[in-house]
Amino acid sequence: MTEKTFMAGFGGQGIISLGQLWVYCAMKEGLEVTFFPFYGAEKRGGVARASVIVSTKEIASPLVTAPDSSIVMNMDSLPICEEVAKQGGLMLVNSSLVKVDPKRADLKVIKIACNEIAEQIGDGKIANMVMMGALSKATGAVKLDKLEAVLKSFFPESKHKFIPMNMAAIEAGMKAV
């Protein structure tokens, strides 16, 4: 199994955290992982992108050029993801912010209202976690069953009170698929 994912959203939406947590969990589940952020002159509001691969075998190029799955967190990311997505690939779209359909007909599109779901749980900022739950359910690549422990080591103790909310977001994301 190799799952190559391309993630994109605007700076501040938590694309980098989403990618890092995804590979951290995958590593804890015994998979090979690689995470490569596209850094540049981007700042808050610019497009943040990440190439993320999890696999049961040694990973070749860390650069995802034809993703099996892509995550579209905002409008600006849609054309970027459509351009690279693999033929017949999976596309998870944050329908809270992306109000149009992809032009490509070959893609398997799943729409998740990440921001609305996150706000119902308690904070719009965890929209990225809703999306991660959906990615787990839709691909089956990473189970996320070790996420709670990962969050405890990923975030400082002062932020641990937010973990239950994050776990609820993952659950909700899984259910939304």
């Binding site: 992982v33 995470f35 952020p37 990973i59 860390p62």
Partner: peptide
Amino acid sequence: GLIGQMMEG
């Protein structure tokens, strides 16, 4: 730069 910037186990 890719080796420097990417994350792996």
